[in-house]
């Protein structure tokens, strides 16, 4: 049932299918200036796309349709998580490939490819998507898109960018040194933190959706 719900969610955003293709040209445009930010950018675009499932569900009262189908509420939540994992995975892969291509063909040769740095970039991006997830999904499953969008969409931006700025300012010049020395450790730590955040996001979302009334 979870895969069926994932497919139903994908069909719900049918009118936005083409918009996801815009992510790639946009990333190519960004690639010349922000090649290092390609993966986080693609995650951000993909997450914005996924939020359409909540918006369209509410606009068309699809929550009521879902509850007439022979599915459990937690399958509805799990289906949306699967779709989001799939799309985030595709976004990260596309971002990473573009970053690699940029580094290979960039005339300025801005990036020297380093495996540890690439792995850290990927795991940090996964952590970033997990952070967006845990701040967005439970709120939207709990309140719906209209009531929850301020809390579920503005809060993640404040937390992510505010938190990152605070950390970088606190560490100062020490940040780059710290990163360089512990890249593998930090990669594992990011991946582990992401796993915890995704699990937390799912548990909170399932609980919130279980209590919701339509």
């Amino acid at each position: 049932m979870k895969n069926k719900m994932m497919a139903l969610d994908w069909r719900t955003v049918k009118s936005y299918w083409y918009s996801i293709l815009l992510v790639f040209p946009l990333m190519i445009v960004f690639s010349s200036a922000f090649s290092l930010a390609l993966v986080p950018l693609s995650v951000y675009f993909v997450m914005s796309f996924i939020l359409n499932t909540f918006a369209l569900e509410e606009r068309n009262s699809l929550g009521k349709l879902y509850l007439t189908l022979p599915v459990r509420r937690r399958d509805i939540v799990a289906g949306r998580f699967r779709l989001s994992f799939l799309l985030i995975g595709a976004g990260i892969t596309a971002g990473a490939l573009l970053m690699l291509l940029t580094s290979m063909f960039s005339q300025s040769n801005a990036i020297d490819f380093r495996l540890d740095f690439a792995v850290f970039g990927l795991s940090a991006s996964v952590l970033y998507s997990a952070l967006l997830h845990v701040l967005t999904f439970p709120t939207l499953f709990w309140l719906g898109f209209q009531k929850g969008r301020l809390l579920g969409m503005v809060l993640p931006i404040i937390v992510c960018f505010g938190g990152l700025t605070y950390i970088m300012n606190s560490l100062g010049d020490y940040a780059a040194e710290l990163l360089n020395a512990n890249l593998w450790f930090l990669s594992v730590a990011c991946a582990a933190a992401a796993l915890i955040l995704f699990t937390l996001s799912y548990v909170l979302s399932a609980k919130a959706y279980e209590r919701r009334e339509f």
Binding site: M1, K4, A7, R11, K14
Partner: peptide, 28 residues
């Protein structure tokens, strides 16, 4: 699985066609 439900208005995505509706519901 044994219920047919219909409210005052069917709850389908605005851009779905009857073919989309079938593709969406049939698997369930």
């Amino acid at each position: 699985d044994d219920l047919g439900v219909l409210f005052e208005i069917p709850y389908f995505q605005d851009n779905w066609t009857p073919t989309d509706v079938e593709k969406a519901l049939r698997p369930f």
